[in-house]
Design a protein around this nucleic acid. Structure first.
Lengths: 196, 196
DNA sequence: ACAAAAACATACTAACCGGTATGTTTTTAA
DNA sequence: TTAAAAACATACCGGTTAGTATGTTTTTGT
């Protein structure tokens, strides 16, 4: 049962790449078969339909990768302002998988699938909630440690920071120019400093 | 030549509604014919193909509507902080056309079409640039009038505010709950106040 | 009134879509 | 070793897609 698992993973990874670049609806099963070399029989042995594969991509590839880049950095000890800024800088400027012209896979899937594909939306909502909780928690911790002003509302900051991220991905995709990331990051820094 | 123009406009408006709700790729020409009552011959008399209709929607419907809601409010005289906040409040909370579950049509089209449909991207980029210029200009004006701190960078503010908007539309679409708009608006207010 | 052009209607096509039916090969467990 | 189950391969299908070919009707200018 080793080879089969490799076939499944191959499908998921290649399909993820195609969907990231072209979108879910415009990536056909035949496209996936062509770039993987897998046949239709094998594909439908591993997934009962295309949507099940899509949800598997979110849960088995997107979610773990998201946890590593978006959640784990927030669990470090230190100054919340620095940690949030560094997380954002790393995601936008250092991540090797995401390209400015293709945006963020989670954002792409959200806008393409919501509100029609409930399974997708549910899985993506979990990602969003995790990130929100991570940011909220580190702000709360910072308030207790006296690193963040007492009047700062953690949930508001989380929603505001997240909005900025999804949005700058959109702007980046539109302008196809990573320079907007830097402009955004500078003002994010300025904003975060006001929380001290 | 009056009836023909009405047919054309009918197609554009109904198609715009369908595309806003379902997405461009998943709205078929037959869908549009069904909801308009227009026949295929009429459709392809007015537009040489589906994409040409899509670009016409952006230029003839989206762009004017965008100008009214996103650009014009910024040209008023007054306090930039208030004007920007009020504009955002009106767009998010008062606009009758946009629904939280469907997001913002401009953002939807951007994420669905970029970077593959150059005609769409170009038209959408013009919208984005206009908005950016509007925000940048009013911040500059505010600096000259002493209403905005001298060290504030207008372009950074514009990009940051725009990012927040696109992003909160994404989050709203995902959560299907207008309450996140209010959370965002509160923090936007807090942020904008720091520019004084 | 009438010819020409504009506007619309109907029937069709070729390509593609997700999915299935029915095989064959490979792996696993006894 | 061998039979059963897992894994994969091939051919096909009905439905949908954007777009076209070929009409008919309506409007327009003279």
């Amino acid at each position: 049962m080793k080879k089969a698992a490799a076939t499944r993973l191959n499908i998921l990874q290649k399909a993820f790449g195609l969907i990231y670049e072209k979108g879910y609806q415009t990536t056909s099963v035949d496209d996936i078969l062509a770039t993987t070399g897998v046949t239709k029989g094998a594909f439908y042995y591993h997934f009962k339909n295309k949507d099940e594969m899509g949800v598997a991509i979110i849960n088995e590839l997107l979610k773990p990768s998201f946890a590593g880049s978006f959640i784990r950095p927030l669990q470090a000890n230190g100054d919340p302002v620095d940690i949030i800024y560094d997380m954002m800088y790393d995601i936008l400027m250092k991540n090797k998988f995401m390209k400015v012209e293709y945006g963020c896979p989670a954002a792409n899937l959200t806008l393409e699938m919501a509100p029609w594909h409930h399974d997708f939306t549910k899985a993506l909502n979990e990602l969003s909630d995790q990130w929100k909780k991570g940011i909220t928690d580190i702000i709360k911790k910072g308030k207790k440690a006296g690193l963040i002003r007492p009047d700062v509302k953690p949930e508001q900051v989380a929603v505001f920071v997240m909005s900025g991220y999804w949005g700058i991905r959109n702007i980046g995709k539109l302008s196809n120019n990573k320079a907007v990331y830097l402009v955004f990051l500078q003002q994010l820094k300025t904003y975060l400093e006001t929380l001290r």
